[in-house]
C-alpha cells in the first residue's frame, strides 16, 4: 500500500516553501498571487514566462528568487543581435602549457537560475537555442553536449507593448514554459507603501532562504504529494477539451481555438497542482489546486484563431469557459437524489 506524506513532512515542505514565499513578498509588494505562482513554478521545476508592462518588478522578482534559493543566477538581456553562442557559450582557443586547443567556454545559460529579460526581442535563432536547454537541460555545441546545472530554471520576461522589432515566441518554445503569468499592476496603497519604505525604489536585501540541500528536500516533498485519480482525470479532461475537434468541447473552444494544448500541458498542471497543494499544507492534490494553476498553465498553450483574436477573445477567457464547462465530477448523481 502506498503511504502518503506524513503530517510532519507536509509541515516541513510547507515551511520551506513559505520561506521563499516570504522573501519574495518582502521584495515585491502587493503581488502575492504572482509570488505564489512563481514559487509553484519553481517547486514544479518548470520555466516561467512573465509578461507585463515595464516597471512592475518582473526582473526584481526573478533576481530575488535566485538569491533566495542560494543558486547561481545569470541575467541575459535579449536583443535582436544576440546570437545563440552568446547564451550557450562556445569553444575558445586557449593556450595551456604551450598547447593550443579549443575549450568550451560556458555561456550564461550555465547557471541555476537564468533570467531571459525581454526574450521576445531576440531573433528566432537565439530563441530556439533555448529549446534544448529548457527541455533537455543540456546544451550541444559543436557536437558536444554539456549538461546544465541542476536545478535549472529559465525565468523569462517579455513586454506586451513596443512590439516593433520583436519576435514573438514560437508555439514550441511557449510550450516549454510551465507558466505564463501576466504581471498585474499595483494599486495606490501598494505604491504608497513602496514610496514610504524604499528610497529610490531600492528593494531590501534578502538573504539566502534555502540551502541547496533544502531546495532538494523541498523538491522531494513536492514529488511526494499524491495526485488522486479523480483530480488527474479532471485535469486531463480540461486539457482534452481545449481541442476544438472534440465533440464535447465547449462552444467557446470551437469558435475561438485553432489548436489545443498538448499532453505537456496536462503534465504541467499536475506538477504545478502538487506544488500548490504543498503550499496549502496538504499531502494530496485537490480540485482547487488544479483550478488555481490551470489558467497560467494552459492559456499560453492554446492557439487562438485570428478572427477570435480580432474579436477580442483571449486564451485566459477560453480557459475560464473550460472551467465552467468541464465539471470536476465527471459522473453526476441521479436526478432523483441531491
Amino acid at each position: 500500500m502506498t503511504t502518503m506524506m506524513t503530517a510532519a513532512e507536509v509541515s516541513r515542505g510547507r515551511e520551506l516553501l513559505a520561506r521563499v514565499q516570504r522573501g519574495c513578498n518582502a521584495v515585491l509588494l502587493g503581488q502575492t498571487e504572482l509570488v505564489d505562482l512563481c514559487v509553484i513554478a519553481l517547486c514544479a521545476r518548470g520555466h516561467l514566462l512573465l509578461e507585463g508592462l515595464p516597471g512592475l518588478g518582473k526582473t526584481e522578482l526573478v533576481k530575488t528568487l535566485g538569491r533566495l534559493l542560494g543558486l547561481s543566477f545569470r541575467r541575459v538581456q535579449f536583443t535582436p543581435d544576440l546570437l545563440p553562442g552568446d547564451i550557450t557559450g562556445g569553444p575558445i582557443l586557449q593556450e595551456r602549457g604551450g598547447e593550443r586547443r579549443f575549450e568550451f567556454q560556458p555561456g550564461p545559460l550555465f547557471a541555476n537560475v537564468v533570467l531571459a529579460d525581454e526574450i521576445n526581442r531576440a531573433s528566432p535563432k537565439t530563441q530556439s537555442a533555448l529549446l534544448e536547454a529548457m527541455q533537455e537541460r543540456s546544451v550541444t555545441v559543436l557536437g558536444e553536449t554539456h549538461s546544465l546545472p541542476a536545478p535549472f530554471f529559465v525565468l523569462a520576461t517579455q513586454n506586451p507593448i513596443e512590439l516593433e522589432g520583436t519576435y514573438p515566441l514560437p508555439e514550441a518554445q511557449l510550450d516549454r514554459f510551465l507558466f505564463k503569468v501576466e504581471v498585474p499592476g499595483v494599486d495606490a496603497d501598494v505604491m504608497t507603501q513602496i514610496l514610504t519604505t524604499r528610497r529610490r525604489g531600492r528593494p531590501p536585501e534578502v538573504d539566502v532562504a534555502l540551502t541547496a540541500a533544502e531546495v532538494e528536500e523541498m523538491f522531494a516533498c513536492v514529488d511526494r504529494v499524491y495526485l488522486p485519480q479523480a483530480v488527474a482525470n479532471w485535469a486531463a479532461r480540461l486539457v482534452a477539451a481545449t481541442h476544438p475537434q472534440r465533440a464535447d468541447s465547449p462552444a467557446e473552444v470551437k469558435q475561438s481555438v485553432r489548436y489545443g494544448a498538448s499532453p505537456r500541458a496536462a503534465i504541467a498542471i499536475g506538477e504545478a497542482a502538487r506544488a500548490s497543494a504543498l503550499l496549502q499544507g496538504r499531502p494530496n492534490v485537490d480540485f482547487a489546486d488544479v483550478e488555481r494553476v490551470v489558467i497560467p498553465a494552459l492559456a499560453h498553450r492554446i492557439v487562438l484563431q485570428h478572427t477570435a483574436v480580432v474579436g477580442g477573445a483571449s486564451a485566459s477567457g477560453v480557459v475560464r469557459a473550460l472551467l465552467a464547462h468541464v465539471p470536476a465530477v465527471a459522473n453526476g448523481l441521479p436526478a432523483a437524489v441531491r
Binding site: Y226, Q229, N284, D286
Partner: peptide
C-alpha cells in the same frame, strides 16, 4: 465507488483525503 468517494469528499470538505483513502493510500 470512486464517484461516490468523490462526491462524499467534496460534501465533507476533506480536500481529497477521502479520495486518497478510497484509492488505497495509507493516510498519516
Amino acid at each position: 465507488a470512486a464517484t461516490a468517494a468523490l462526491h462524499l469528499d467534496r460534501r465533507l470538505g476533506l480536500r481529497g483525503l477521502l479520495l486518497c483513502a478510497n484509492e488505497g493510500i495509507e493516510l498519516d
